[in-house]
Simulated assay, not measured.
Amino acid sequence: MPLTPLDIHNKEFPRKLRGYDEDAVNEFLDQIIKDYEALIKENKEIHNHAQSLQDKLNHFSNLEETLSKTIIVAQEAADDVKSNAKKESQLIVKEAEKNADRIVNDALAKSRKIALEVEELKKQASIYRARFRTLVEAQLELLSQDGWEALERAEVNREEY
C-alpha cells in the first residue's frame, strides 16, 4: 500500500543520543509532503485525463464500428434493391415478350381466318355466278323456243272474242 501525505506527516522517528536535527528533518518531511501531495494530485489528473481519452476512444471506436456496420447494411440493401430491380425488369421484359408473341399470334390467326373467309366468299361468288349464268341461259333458251309465239297468238285470238 502506497504512502499518503498523512502517513509521512504522522511518521515519528525514535530519538537517539546523537540523532539528526529534529527541525531540519521536520522541514525536509514537510517539503516531501508538499511534493508528494503535488505528485498524487498530478497523477490523479493524468489518470482522469487518460480515462477521459479512453472514454472518447471507446466512443469513437463504437461510432466507427456502427458506421462500418451501417455502411455494410446500406451496401447490402443497395445490392438487394439492385438485384430486385434487375429481376423485376427481367419479368417485365418476359411479360412484354409474351404479350408481343400473343398479339402477333392473334394477328396471324385473324389474318388466316380472314384469308380463308375471302377464299370462301370468292368460291361462293363463283358458284353464284355460275348458277346465275345457268339460270339466265335457261331462261333465254325458254324465251327462244317456238312455244312462246303460239302462246302469244292464242292470247291475241282470245282477246278478239
Rank of each mutant, 00 (worst) to 15 (best):
E22A: 07
L39R: 11
V156P: 04
D146N: 08
K16L: 11
R129T: 07
L121R: 04
V118C: 06
E117D: 12
Q54P: 03
I32H: 00
E155N: 13
L142D: 14
P2D: 07
E88N: 02
R133E: 15
E117I: 04
R153F: 01
A107R: 06
P5W: 01
A96R: 13
K110P: 02
L6P: 10
Q139T: 03
Q90D: 03
F60Y: 14
P5I: 04
Y36C: 01
F13L: 14
R102G: 01
R131E: 14
K113N: 12
G19F: 04
V118I: 12
N10Q: 10
F132C: 10
K44F: 08
E27W: 14
Q31E: 14
L91A: 02
D146S: 14
L135R: 07
P2K: 03
L17R: 14
E97W: 09
K11I: 04
I33P: 01
V136D: 14
N62F: 12
R102F: 05
E64T: 10
D7P: 00
K86V: 06
V81S: 01
A24G: 07
R102K: 13
K11H: 09
K94R: 08
L3H: 02
E42T: 02
L143Q: 12
K82L: 05
N99S: 09
D80A: 00
E22S: 13
Q124D: 05
R131P: 05
V136P: 02
Q139L: 08
N84R: 04
V156M: 13
E37R: 07
I33T: 00
S52G: 13
D79Y: 10
N43I: 12
I114F: 15
Q54K: 12
Y20Q: 14
A78S: 09
W148K: 08
N43C: 05
G19K: 00
E159W: 00
I72C: 03
Y36P: 02
L116P: 00
E141I: 09
E22D: 09
K110A: 06
L121M: 07
L140Y: 13
H59D: 11
E155D: 08
K122I: 15
D79S: 03
A100I: 12
A154Q: 09
V118W: 03
Q54G: 03
S89D: 06
